[in-house]
């Protein structure tokens, strides 16, 4: 082999070695990230064999499931099946008779009200009817958590305006809850729950009784939280169009910096949204929307089609 060829070969080997080095650095970086990501392996919410009864009836019976970080768990089920009870257990508003409840890997089952207050700071809750404080204005409602924490008024106002912009209701800042429509109340409730950027958000039938466009807006908010804010959430509903929006669309930011909603398909398949169906306190289905539509269970089929 000529000397020039040998040199060339050596340079190539060195170059390849250099590339290899760069790859291994990148791999090391990614390994490092994976170590960080280990935190993501801890479920945001975990139920282990949770049982809760009211009187003689068990509303929840040996319920076990996990909601991973950044995941949205849609909880489906008819009225009175224990959907809302489930999310109240996460917040410690109710305590299980048996079983354990974990939030971010922390066993909160036996926490008293005082310890629970610390856990709740990281959880936002959106109630069925908004549950706004009637005696407080929209501003005071949204700023409630900040006022309680003694945040200076200037900072509180900035945060309140930012949250109200997020739900498209900045104009209603000085109104009283009685002056708002049902959909607006829900959106103020969402803004209030999201102050302080909680990493877990609970939606308790947020679209019940709302017109389709408003319901769609609320689902878009949930999608934005999931895809742009990396929020873990439980979304209690019995409306199938909510399920369709949440399982088939994702939020992204376009080149102009605007939030856009795109359907999953060729480019992306949504894996961060799962469905769980509860009936008589038991989980009768757990999986993706595709699995749900293919199920043979006659009750689920009737639930999906309405007949």
């Amino acid at each position: 082999m000529a000397s020039t060829e040998l040199e060339t070969q050596q340079r190539m080997d060195a170059a390849i070695e250099g590339v290899d080095n760069r790859v291994s650095e990148a791999a090391a970086e990614s390994t490092f990230q994976e170590i960080e990501d280990d935190a993501r392996a801890i479920p945001a919410i975990e139920f282990q064999h949770v049982t809760l009864g009211f009187g003689d009836r068990n509303v929840l019976d040996d319920l076990s499931f996990k909601v991973m970080k950044g995941e949205t768990k849609i909880i489906l089920g008819g009225s009175g099946t224990g959907k809302s009870t489930t999310i109240k257990l996460v917040l410690g508003l109710l305590k299980p008779d048996e079983g354990r409840v974990f939030v971010n890997g922390e066993d909160v089952t036996d926490y008293g009200e005082y310890e629970m207050m610390r856990v709740r700071k990281n959880i936002g809750m959106i109630f069925q009817e908004g549950a706004l404080f009637d005696s407080l204005s929209v501003y005071e409602n949204v700023a409630y958590r900040l006022h309680e924490q003694g945040v200076p008024e200037d900072e509180a106002e900035q945060e309140v305006r930012r949250m109200l912009r997020f739900v498209n209701l900045e104009d209603a800042i000085d109104k009283m809850p009685a002056e708002l429509s049902g959909g607006m109340r829900r959106r103020v409730g969402i803004a209030r729950a999201l102050v302080g950027a909680p990493q877990i958000v609970m939606f308790d039938e947020p679209t019940a009784g709302l017109d389709p466009p408003t319901a769609r807006t609320i689902c878009e908010l949930a999608i934005k939280l999931r895809d742009l804010e990396d929020v873990s959430s439980m979304f209690v509903t019995h409306e199938m169009n909510n399920v369709e929006y949440l399982t088939s669309e994702y939020a992204a930011v376009n080149d102009e910096g605007e939030v856009i909603f795109e359907e999953e398909g060729q480019k992306l398949c949504l894996i961060n949204t799962k469905i769980m169906m509860i009936r008589d306190g038991h989980i009768i289905f757990s999986g993706t929307d595709e699995q749900l539509t293919k199920t043979d269970d006659p009750y689920i089929k009737r639930f999906l089609r309405g007949k």
Binding site: K88, L91, L93, E113, Y114, M117, R120, K121, I123, M125, F127, Q128, E129, A131, L132, F133, D134, Y144, R145, E148, G189, R192, A193
Partner: peptide
């Protein structure tokens, strides 16, 4: 009582107030 039935008490607890 009205605050209880309209879930305002639950909301208060959820927002970290006793």
């Amino acid at each position: 009582g009205s605050m209880v039935v309209s879930q305002q008490i639950d909301a208060m607890r959820a927002l970290g107030t006793d």
